[in-house]
Design a protein around this nucleic acid. Structure first.
Lengths: 200, 200
DNA sequence: TTAGTAAATAAACATCGTTCAGTTAATTAC
DNA sequence: GTAATTAACTGAACGATGTTTATTTACTAA
């Protein structure tokens, strides 16, 4: 009966196991320090098996890249229900940084890592990145209509806000904030977001 | 006579040739895609020769890392002669981003790349990074005394400004701004710096 | 039970960073 | 000027990497 269905299920389960192991390893040791054999060890299969589910190491990266963007986009959308445009913008920034801190491995893959091969560069899934940028611009525009961002170009404002939250996220993800005591980091970040708000 | 001197000279010349070839390759293809054999080919020596001048691949990286910070620090210092604290801060930010755009390979190695081995983490030469951070804080403090940054914590302000310029630099260096037409990038960046100035 | 198919393996390949025994060139000692 | 010593360099070799493959194992269907 459901033989085909079970096989299908097992196939996706195996893919999930590989992706999950790879994501954890990528996060702990970095893309280049993760070997296919390490992933194989972690899922307790031989190396060759992975190649039955993924073309190569880059495809594993690519899939994680896509999932990162999907989750990212979902979170960005979730703040859109906030009415006040300024509050919404703040929540937008917080959601951005929170995503980076919660899933540093995804954030890395999405916005920092050098893309292995050219496949990602102009890929379909960067569109999800552009879409979130459009949301940001929309939110800024509405803030403008509410009287904020006077005498500021929309593109400049969007670029500035993005750079700001990316800067924080990138420093955190690539561990350039080790001189900051962990307990001060959170207030520092929320302080920074508040500081940026003065420019609105 | 000057045999020792000549040998000394030749030794440093060889080191320079290796470093120069490595920097160009790192910049073009990324640290992990550069092989010792590629570097050897470029300087027209055998692989083994490189190991007479550098302990390993990481040491080449490390040396470039140090040089990046040295040049970086020099540039940061050079804006200190500007009297007006706000003008100085702006120049500071501009110098920061200009360094990143002029030497993306150095900036990468200094603030973005995952550090190979632990040697860099708490190394002596990160001090140069901390020193530039101290300069930034000093400049902000003087701007505060001149009446700016009212009701803002010094650490928050420093962190914010750094995150901001790093965000721009990192997006540029890791090519996440490819959707922005090149001719718009410069005005976008100077616009962003001006925008941030509204928060001072 | 058996033939056929899918899944998994282990061995092999080319290439990587690194090492080292051996070769060549330059310098010093006599 | 020749031999001995030192320095510079080479290229083959090692273990580990990503990937491919022939082969074995496990499951399915007749």
């Amino acid at each position: 009966m459901g033989v085909k269905e079970r096989k299908e299920r097992q196939k996706t389960e195996m893919r999930e196991a590989i992706l999950s192991a790879a994501l954890k390893l990528f996060s702990d040791e970095g893309y280049d320090n993760v070997t296919m054999r390490k992933i194989a060890d972690k899922i307790e299969y031989s190396v060759g098996t992975i190649y039955l589910y993924f073309k190569d190491k880059g495809e594993i990266f690519y899939e994680l890249h896509n999932r990162g963007f999907a989750e990212f986009y979902k979170r960005q959308l979730s703040v859109q229900r906030i009415k006040d445009p300024i509050e919404r913008l703040k929540a937008h920034g917080e959601a951005y940084i929170q995503f980076a801190m919660e899933y540093p491995e995804y954030y890395d893959v999405m916005f920092i890592s050098r893309t292995p091969a050219k496949e990602i560069k102009k890929s379909e899934h960067w569109e999800e990145g552009e879409r979130t940028y459009e949301i940001l611009k929309l939110n800024i525009k509405q803030a403008m209509e509410a009287g904020y961002f006077k005498n500021v170009d929309l593109d400049v404002a969007a670029f500035s806000l993005w750079s700001f939250v990316h800067g924080i996220s990138a420093l955190f993800v690539r561990e350039r904030l080790s001189m900051m005591p962990t307990e001060f980091l959170k207030p520092l970040i929320s302080g920074a977001l508040q500081f940026l708000g003065r420019a609105y």
